[in-house]
């Protein structure tokens, strides 16, 4: 990659280069100096001395390199260190996010937590669990998937296999538009239709309707991409044998691309599992177990986190972290399984 390894080290042609350990030395030096400065100045935040060290590193390596290697190499080094700084800047908080969730989440996460509801537990008391939230999430997401998967997959089939002309263009455009709808707006739409106009109360099903608005475009997009990957030769071979088009689609096109389609659906499910805003508007949340998604408020995992956070006591915070850990684990597992399926069923 770098030209340093390609050319022999001949100083008469290349000019001076700094040794490889130079960057590490500057890094160590600036870390020590940054820590020293902040200790001397009485700064307490970890973020601050890290930032001071980063600035020292960039400036230091530029200065030394400009002196020895020349301006172009110095610029190259600055760019390299800026890229590393960007990486560290972003990775630190993101790692902290995962770490804090895992660390604080395991405190109360156990079998009891997964199998009990909040029914008789006051906000400030320890105990209680997320059974009602898990149940609600599974039902709402399941219903949303039941609505959006057929609609999404059939729309994608229409766009790829049949769609030409104005209707297909309009559908493509509006699927794009739907992809960008903020979740709270989807919630507001169902609110205005379902609750304000049809006068239905809050229920898990209303939440599922809003979630499926968010899910449909994702399913359409990913299924469309997968169907486009199916080679036309397969379709032509099947049609040449006299198989009707609909059987060709069902027996040739879909089985060929089913791995990718399932992956897309699972990623879409993972995305809507974490949605809170529509659930807040339409499902409301409750502390009790409600297994019927068509009547009365239900709980869901994200909603549970929000309510426990709002309760504001230490045991409630613990429960919120544990629920967050469960939610992340659930979504990560979905993601990993989806990727596994994609790899396993990849078109060969």
């Amino acid at each position: 990659m770098s030209n340093a390894t390609l050319s022999p080290r001949r100083d008469s042609l290349r000019g001076a280069t700094l040794p490889k350990w130079f960057a590490w030395a500057v890094a160590a030096g600036s870390l020590a100096l940054g820590y020293g400065i902040s200790a001397a100045a009485g700064l307490h935040s970890d973020v601050q001395w890290a930032l001071i060290a980063a600035v020292l590193f960039v400036v230091g390596s530029y200065a030394v390199s400009a002196k020895i290697e020349g301006a172009r190499q110095a610029k190259d080094r600055t760019a390299t260190s800026l890229v590393w700084v960007a990486f560290l800047l972003a990775v630190t908080p993101l790692a902290s996010l995962l770490w804090e969730t895992a660390e604080r989440g395991v405190k109360v996460l156990d079998g009891y937590f997964l199998t009990h509801s909040m029914g008789v537990v006051a906000d400030a008391e320890p105990g209680g669990g997320i059974y009602h939230a898990l149940l609600g999430t599974l039902e709402q997401v399941g219903l949303a998937a039941l609505i959006s998967v057929p609609v999404g997959v059939l729309t994608a089939i229409y766009l790829v296999e049949y769609g030409r002309g104005k209707l297909a263009k309009a559908v493509t455009f509006f699927v794009d538009v739907m992809t960008g709808i903020p979740s709270i707006v989807a919630g507001l739409f169902i609110l205005s239709l379902w609750v304000l106009i049809l006068k239905m109360g809050p229920s898990g099903f209303a939440g599922s309707l809003a979630l499926s608005i968010l899910m449909i475009p994702v399913v359409v997009r990913s299924t469309e991409e997968m169907l486009k990957l199916v080679p036309n030769e397969l379709r032509e071979a099947s049609l040449a044998l006299g198989v009707p088009k609909w059987r060709t689609i069902l027996k040739v096109v879909l089985p060929t691309s089913i791995g990718g389609i399932i992956t897309g659906i699972m990623l879409a499910v993972a995305r809507i599992t974490g949605e809170t805003a529509p659930v807040l508007l339409l499902v409301w949340g409750t502390d009790f177990i409600n297994a019927n998604p068509f009547q009365d408020p239900q709980e869901s995992l994200p909603m549970y986190i929000y309510l426990q956070f709002g309760a504001g006591s230490d045991p409630a915070y613990d429960r919120a972290w544990a629920a967050a850990l469960t939610l992340i684990a659930f979504i990560m597992i979905l993601n990993l399984v989806a990727r596994g399926i994609a790899r396993w069923k990849a078109p060969r």
Binding site: L154, Y158, F174, S192
Partner: peptide, 27 residues
């Protein structure tokens, strides 16, 4: 079979359009 299948898939496409129109209209 073809007609039914085409009807279903075109219907889904139209459903998406109607949904978007409904969102805009209700809001």
């Amino acid at each position: 079979g073809d007609r039914i299948f085409l009807g279903f898939s075109r219907g889904s496409g139209i459903f998406v359009l109607v949904l978007m129109a409904a969102i805009a209209a209700f809001l």
